[in-house]
Amino acid sequence: MKKIISLGIVIVVSLFAFQSCRQGPPIRMAEKVNLDLFMGDWFVIANIPTFIEKGAHNAIETYEREDENVINTTFSFNKDSFTGPKKEYNPTGFVQDDPSNAEWKMQFLWPFKSEYIIVYVDPAYEYTIIGRTKRDYVWIMARKPQIDQRELERLIQIAVDEGYDRNAIQLVPQEANKKP
């Protein structure tokens, strides 16, 4: 029964929340993303969440290259508290824009693919911002579960400069050095 409910959630997300058509002015894309450096764990520090992410604690997005332009993704979090039930989703990313590698399509359920834009990644690959042209969702992520408040404000300002509503961006609770 849980698998049927989870599949239903993924279908709804795929059909409504992650529509792949672009709507809105162009969004900035990172100039060049080194996919090998981008792989690994990213802690979600702040976001405008999709409905499945509401209440997420210890949210982590993990990327692993399957092929040159195919990225296996694991998105995991604890639901509603640090000790809440663990949730995990495994979409596949497809890199669309060569040579920047900043535009992906994320597929939760075949054949639907959603827009996934690497708006920013710092030169050390410690911080990234993922966005969409619609400005409906954004993810501010870091390699560590906690970041300096000034750095967080700088990253939020980048998202705001790209057209995101500052008031809609929420912090994601993270326990230091803990994976769900």
Rank of each mutant, 00 (worst) to 15 (best):
W42P: 05
F43Y: 15
F43T: 02
V44F: 01
V44W: 01
V44C: 05
I45T: 08
A46M: 06
N47Y: 08
I48E: 03
I48D: 05
P49A: 06
T50Q: 04
F51E: 08
F51G: 06
I52K: 02
I52D: 04
I52M: 12
E53S: 07
E53P: 03
K54P: 04
K54N: 11
G55R: 04
A56P: 07
H57G: 07
N58V: 06
N58W: 06
N58P: 07
A59K: 00
A59D: 01
A59C: 08
T62S: 01
T62M: 00
Y63V: 05
R65C: 02
R65D: 01
E66N: 09
D67M: 12
E68F: 11
E68K: 03
E68T: 14
N69Y: 15
V70W: 09
I71R: 03
I71H: 03
T73M: 11
T73S: 07
T73H: 05
T73E: 09
F77D: 00
F77H: 02
F77P: 00
N78A: 11
N78E: 10
N78R: 08
K79C: 09
D80L: 14
D80C: 12
S81L: 11
S81T: 12
F82Q: 08
F82V: 09
T83E: 10
T83V: 13
T83P: 08
G84A: 06
P85W: 14
K87N: 05
E88K: 00
Y89V: 03
Y89T: 01
N90V: 02
G93Y: 04
G93N: 02
F94W: 10
F94M: 02
V95T: 00
D97Q: 05
D97V: 02
D98V: 14
D98C: 07
P99K: 09
P99R: 12
S100G: 11
N101Q: 14
A102T: 11
A102P: 11
E103L: 03
W104I: 03
W104V: 00
W104N: 00
K105W: 14
K105V: 12
M106S: 11
M106R: 09
M106H: 08
M106I: 15
M106N: 12
M106T: 14
Q107E: 15
Q107G: 13
Q107F: 04
W110M: 12
W110H: 05
P111A: 13
P111V: 13
F112M: 14
F112R: 05
F112T: 12
S114N: 12
E115A: 10
Y116F: 14
Y116V: 07
I117S: 10
I117D: 10
I117N: 13
I117W: 05
I117V: 15
I117G: 06
I118M: 07
I118S: 01
I118F: 01
I118D: 00
I118L: 07
V119P: 07
Y120G: 09
Y120N: 10
V121D: 09
D122M: 15
D122S: 11
D122K: 14
